[in-house]
Design a protein around this nucleic acid. Structure first.
Length: 414
DNA sequence: TGTCCACTGGAAGGGAGGGCTT
DNA sequence: AAGCCCTCCCTTCCAGTGGACA
């Protein structure tokens, strides 16, 4: 039999297989379920804060705190939807609009204002080019045309700290004094409990009116969430008895992250499907758990800019050489030599120091500042993941490939 | 006790690349 | 085309520092 005819039926047989998933969407982060288990009191609190908007009053600004995957975003969106529905049903109520912005993506004053304007008018705003105050004005005009209350949700608001983000928060809280008809009130969502401390004091007082804290889910609660979603997502009888409790337990260990739990369940299903298994078992969950970890870092490394890749590569080389702990000076030396070897521009040590911190933030390595007394202060750097897989990914880059045979000069024996 | 190392990390600003306005 | 603006990535400059050593 020739090669082609061996596989002639491949698609039919794949299609014939019983599908595991009924509706995989139910396991994605973007999915909004009909119920939010274990978040009833948060929904009530939030609704209570926002209800003045329906009477034509301005609700106080609000901060929502909680670790990732504790349901902050989904609860806010849910309550806003209810609010809009209520307005639609009872036309004697004061009009309310809501806008949602993710500050991790939309992270400058200009972009936030442009995004908001887009949500409230037809006006086209270029992604760059205008002075910021012009964009501010167009947002002001867009919302002030009629009497209404605007609720702006700034998700991941802690990502704005430090940049001129303070300004945008300040400007938005102060906006009401410039508005004739409408009113703006803010909901800030933050992972970081201490976020307010980093803000300018004028902003602190206007923003920190009320707050709601979302506590992490425990394993029991995660189980409830997973069961609810699994019912929609999987064909009945596909999941082994212990699959959901295991997913819940693993995610509970990661500070009760529901997103993580859902990912885990979804990937477990995918792993089982690929293996042609009849059902999803505990083994699939454990494999999925490893796969998620690995995929995340590998993807992070793959999308690094060349300079960071080279830097990481030099750290790996030093680590493989073994011996004492690695410090910034050494890394910079090696990095410099490698740059020369592949004729890449060399960045300054200051910049490299920042890049090291970025790699630290990504969880690829661990760096801590240590003082060696007489011999100065430096960062001590350690890889957080095994260099073997890392190297393979890095060597996909054509420039780094040239360094496979790069030899460190003798040194580093002490 | 003071000195001094090898940096750290903040601040300011340059300039390239995107764009708009006149 | 000239004059602006915004953002990103970087450089330059520099004050600050924990602790070994003299």
């Amino acid at each position: 039999m020739d090669f082609k005819s061996t596989f002639s039926g491949i698609f039919e047989s794949l299609l014939d297989r019983e599908p595991m998933f009924k509706n995989k969407e139910a396991l994605r982060h973007s999915y909004t379920p009909a119920e939010l288990p274990h978040r009833e009191s948060e929904v009530e609190q939030l609704a209570a804060t926002l209800v003045p908007s329906l009477r034509g009053e301005t609700p106080s600004n609000l901060l929502i705190y909680g670790k990732s995957g504790t349901g902050k975003t989904i609860v806010s969106r849910f309550v806003c939807e209810l609010l809009r529905d209520t307005v639609k049903k009872r036309d004697y109520l004061y009009p309310v609009s809501t806008a949602y912005i993710n500050c991790e993506i939309t992270d400058t004053q200009y972009r936030i204002l442009a995004n908001l304007t887009k949500q409230f008018s037809e006006k086209k705003i270029p992604f760059t080019g205008w002075p910021t105050d012009k964009v501010y004005k167009s947002f002001l005009e867009a919302i002030d045309k009629e009497k209404q209350c605007i609720i702006v949700i700034l998700d991941e608001i802690d990502k704005l700290v430090g940049k001129q983000g303070d300004d945008i928060i300040y400007n938005l809280t102060r906006m009401n004094s410039e508005l004739e008809n409408s009113r703006v009130s803010l909901i800030g969502i933050s992972n970081d409990l201490k976020f307010v401390d980093y803000l300018d004091s004028r902003v602190q007082s206007s923003l920190g009116g009320e707050e709601i804290v979302f506590t992490p889910y425990n394993a029991r609660q995660l189980e409830d969430i997973l069961r609810q979603r699994a019912e929609i997502a999987f064909e009945p009888g596909i999941l082994d008895e212990y699959v959901i409790p295991l997913c819940a337990a693993l995610a509970a260990r990661e500070h009760g992250d529901a997103r993580r739990a859902l990912d885990l369940l979804r990937v477990s299903g995918e792993v089982a499907e690929r293996e042609n298994a009849e059902r999803v078992t505990e083994t699939h969950v454990r494999n999925a758990n490893e796969k998620i970890e690995k995929d995340n870092t590998i993807e992070a490394v793959r999308t690094l800019p060349t300079q960071s890749k080279l830097l990481l590569y030099s750290i790996i080389q030093l680590e493989e050489k073994g011996g004492k702990a690695i410090n910034t000076g050494e890394v910079y030396d090696t990095y410099k030599r490698m740059c020369k070897a592949v004729s890449l521009d060399t960045l300054t040590q200051r910049r490299v120091s920042d890049l090291i911190s970025e790699l630290d933030m990504l969880g690829i390595l661990n760096s801590r500042v240590v003082s060696k007394g007489r011999y100065g202060r430096t960062k001590e750097i350690k890889l957080d993941i095994s260099p073997v897989g890392l190297k393979t990914v890095l060597e996909e880059d054509t420039r780094i490939k040239k360094l496979v045979d790069f030899n460190l000069p003798q040194q580093r024996l002490a």
